[in-house]
Design a protein around this nucleic acid. Structure first.
Lengths: 343, 343
DNA sequence: CGTATCATTCAAAGCGCTTTGAAAATTTAA
DNA sequence: TTAAATTTTCAAAGCGCTTTGAATGATACG
């Protein structure tokens, strides 16, 4: 069923039928009702390709996933972010599109996606320090929003981010206040901007307390469970092991916990652990009492806000750049406690 | 830059340019090279809406996510499956589209997605027992593939699935062989087909061993960490607690482990645990030695195969129905051992 | 040299929709 | 009653591409 057939059935022109369905005022109310009824009856759905071709809009938002980063899409954090975004898209009648792009040709991929008219806007996830994709998108004139920020990037752009530096500074400070002096940071990949900022927050807190950072306690990698486990095992073997650990994600914190338990250490008593909690749906940080003391900020909520901001941008391409900085809460659980004198 | 402009620049007709770029034989090789060079130089990208309109193909695969199931997309299993699929799509030049659909109007959503010409095919994830969406898609004549199967569905359809029944029967059998008689099943939602089959496998093994299932040991819910934790806590409080636990996902198994550790029980010695391991990228089941004895099958690989099968189907709509049944391995880790006499 | 054959190229129609500018039908004003 | 204003409907152009059917130029054959 298409517009032509429908209008023939109704004995009206395509123009009138189209207008009736799209809510234009210059059509008789009686006719409109007749048209709507017929459309419903015959299950008429305007072809979105044709519609897009005619209007220049696709009502689709693109998410581009670098092929190399095998992990991007598979990352539970990604899943929650996207789920939040999907919610907002649905409300505004947008669909969501994912493209894999070989990172040899990121610029090309973006240009392609936008120029081919596939999408109206793009969400950029997981920005690195000096993220090259940002200037690319900016130059292309594509409406886009960054989840996170990119230190060192000069061009203006829309973003939404958690105050990673501040939250990790606070967490570190919290541990220092409990008497901890040797604090390990099990961080994400530090080429990623969020990890870089967290590291800075951690270092800032140490500095303020006049503590010297120990490179042996600073680790960085993709935030898997295994990584948390191995790193913790590793760190505990040091001559002078830390009394507290800061983990960049609940997932690696779970690995840390596994390592601690294997070593017979009790969290909160023998060693303190703070994790960053993105409030992943499948990995809640306990129920009433948090499992881990944590810096908490819902990545799902961030996804929802990001989508809203992007849609606003699409509707008002010339507004000045927007941004949104979310503060993470510091929630206290049982995984932290005063430093314990080593026996 | 569009076809018209490009052909004007080249002094050729749109026909020739189009053919040159799409590899048709009836164009002079010399001309083709000239055209390709110009296309590259001007960054020409055919508009996919227009292309789709002209060809009737969109090179997009749709994944529909019921709005109600807040968890679908957020489920790490979903993420891994989709990552696998994305890989295959990329290879065949397909993009991937997600739509949220209110479950009040699933049929409508599918019809819409396909009839609007947005997608060439659809992946149906998380089928339930007697999944109503399957006959709907079948009737619409949309190419589609089901990840999983649906007990009770009569119409033929393409599917790819793990042999859930068999793998859980084997796992249960394995525990019985170790002397366990009271075995708990911490299952997924049993309206889901996979969970239903796992339950059957479990019951079959019990039956073969002439053991009577105890309803108190049969639990079912969304497979989160918290659920695993709470259920395990709950079950351990029974007068006659189980000596072994079968968990339907690594994620809930992690919750189970947390509960066991809190109770001071050692996995593999005091109590045995087997989990189903989807080989989630961020939640590997240990490295060399598995953390959990597990039934193992990569959901990511399944995603890749599913995508391949769907693309085949799109290219050959009239082939007979295809299916693919994967067998899960049973890998033995340290979480299982012979039953221990209760003191 | 004239005709048949092949290799290239082209103009134009069509995909299904929106939208412009004009025409018909109706109402209002003079 | 007629002209002007308003409401309602329409034909046709256009979005950017593919593809059909015809035309052109080059080559081969008798």
């Amino acid at each position: 069923m298409n517009l032509k057939k429908l209008s023939e059935i109704l004995g009206l022109s395509q123009t009138t039928v189209s207008r009736a369905l799209n809510g234009y005022p210059e059509v008789n109310e009686e006719t409109r009702i007749r048209v709507q009824a017929a459309a419903a009856k015959h299950g008429y759905r305007p072809n979105s390709r044709a519609k897009g071709l005619a209007t220049g809009r696709s009502l689709v938002i693109g998410h581009v996933i670098p092929t190399s980063s095998q992990h991007e899409m598979v990352n539970p954090i990604f899943g929650d972010f996207v789920a939040g975004a999907a919610r907002a898209y649905a409300q505004h009648n947008y669909d969501m599109m994912f493209t894999h792009a070989p990172d040899t040709s990121i610029e090309e991929s973006y240009r392609s996606l936008f120029n081919r008219g596939v999408v109206d806007g793009i969400v950029l996830q997981g920005p690195k320090v000096n993220e090259p994709r940002i200037p690319v998108l900016s130059r292309l004139g594509v409406p886009f929003i960054v989840h996170g920020r990119s230190t060192g990037t000069q061009v203006p752009y829309d973003w939404i981010d958690v105050n990673n530096q501040r939250s990790f500074e606070r967490a570190t400070q919290f541990l220092i206040d409990l008497g901890h002096r040797r604090i390990a940071l099990i961080n994400g990949l530090e080429e990623m901007d969020f990890a870089w900022r967290r590291r800075n927050g951690y270092l800032t807190a140490l500095k303020k307390a006049e503590l010297t950072p120990d490179p042996a306690l600073l680790r960085s990698a993709e935030m898997t469970e295994i990584y948390g486990y191995q790193t913790a095992c590793d760190i505990l073997k040091l001559d002078d092991p830390p009394t507290a650990i800061l983990a960049s994600s609940i997932i690696s914190a779970i690995g840390v916990r596994r390592a601690l338990e294997e070593s017979g250490l009790k969290m909160g008593r023998d060693i303190s652990v703070i994790a960053h909690d993105d409030e992943l749906s499948y990995m809640r940080n306990g129920q009433d009492v948090p499992i881990f003391t944590a810096t908490r900020s819902s990545v799902r909520h961030a996804g929802e806000l990001a989508a809203e901001m992007l849609i606003e941008r699409i509707n008002a391409p010339d507004d000045p750049p927007k941004s949104c900085l979310l503060e993470a809460e510091l929630v206290v659980g049982n995984s932290t406690g005063p430093v314990r004198q080593r026996s």
